[in-house]
């Protein structure tokens, strides 16, 4: 009977969502204040930014969109590459793998904690821009959507890399950094994409940070390389690809 099926699916979905939320809350309690998360998620993007911003002949306030972008990239993708290898080592990850929840919920729950952490941390440069530099925000709703999508995209990327079956945090972080570090140079954060050579411009198209940063720039300046709608669509596609790939890898590596 369709009505029973519908009810069954609603119940199932509600259970899956609450389990994902429980996993996210558990990560928040345990990992948000771990020293390696603070270094990787807060200090690392800050120092990276300062290294490039100091000496630039631009008003400090105009650098805020770039700082928000790299904060989202590093903070969102820092929780799971730390938490999951640790949980593999102490065998608590088996608890999640053997729970009556789908792998999608497990992956989503893990990503959710990185997502919320990143949104919280990215509010710091946002607040600095507003309070100290009085940086105007032209399109607030676009900025909110950009931050949400960019954050969730990189949180899912972190969960994807954490699928690698190791108990060593350093191993996952090394692999992740070989992807994260080039992203900040090819995505228009420090160097505008339009000034990059042809090959650089083409590579920029395959970076999710390009689209997140483009939307954030649009929110602050009203100017962007692509339309915000296209940025949204591409970021959603990246999220789906990362989620499906993560799901596949967790399944494969546990066989």
């Amino acid at each position: 009977m369709p009505s029973i099926d519908h009810k069954g699916w609603t119940k199932r979905l509600s259970r899956e969502l609450s389990a994902a939320w429980a996993i996210a809350r558990k990560d928040m309690r345990i990992y948000y204040l771990k020293p390696n998360i603070i270094v990787s998620g807060i200090l690392f993007p800050l120092f990276m930014f300062l290294a490039f911003a100091i000496g630039k002949n631009a008003p400090a306030g105009t650098l805020i969109p770039g700082l928000i972008s790299i904060t989202l990239l590093f903070s969102a993708s820092s929780i799971e590459p730390v938490s999951i290898p640790i949980e593999r080592r102490v065998k608590t990850f088996d608890r999640l793998l053997s729970a009556p929840i789908s792998l999608h919920s497990l992956v989503a729950g893990e990503s959710l904690s990185g997502f919320l952490y990143s949104l919280g941390i990215a509010c710091l440069p946002l607040a600095v821009g507003v309070i100290i530099f009085s940086t105007p925000i032209v399109h607030v709703p676009v900025l909110v959507i950009a931050m949400i999508l960019t954050s969730f995209c990189f949180a899912t990327l972190g969960t994807l890399f954490a699928a690698y079956p190791t108990e060593n945090v350093g191993e996952v972080m090394s692999m992740l950094n070989t992807v994260r570090l080039p992203l900040i140079f090819i995505s228009g954060v420090f160097i505008p994409i339009s000034t990059m050579p042809q090959i650089g411009q083409k590579i920029a198209l395959i970076s999710p940070l390009t689209y997140g940063n483009d939307m954030i720039e649009f929110a602050y300046t009203g100017k962007s390389l692509f339309s915000p709608l296209l940025d949204i669509v591409v970021l959603v596609i990246f999220i789906m690809i990362f989620q499906i790939a993560a799901n596949h890898l967790y399944k494969k590596f546990n066989e």
């Binding site: 609450s18 389990a19 429980a22 809350r25 558990k26 608890r95």
Partner: peptide, 8 residues
């Protein structure tokens, strides 16, 4: 409580 939440 976490374990109970995982098991609905």
């Amino acid at each position: 409580i976490f374990s109970a939440e995982l098991y609905h």
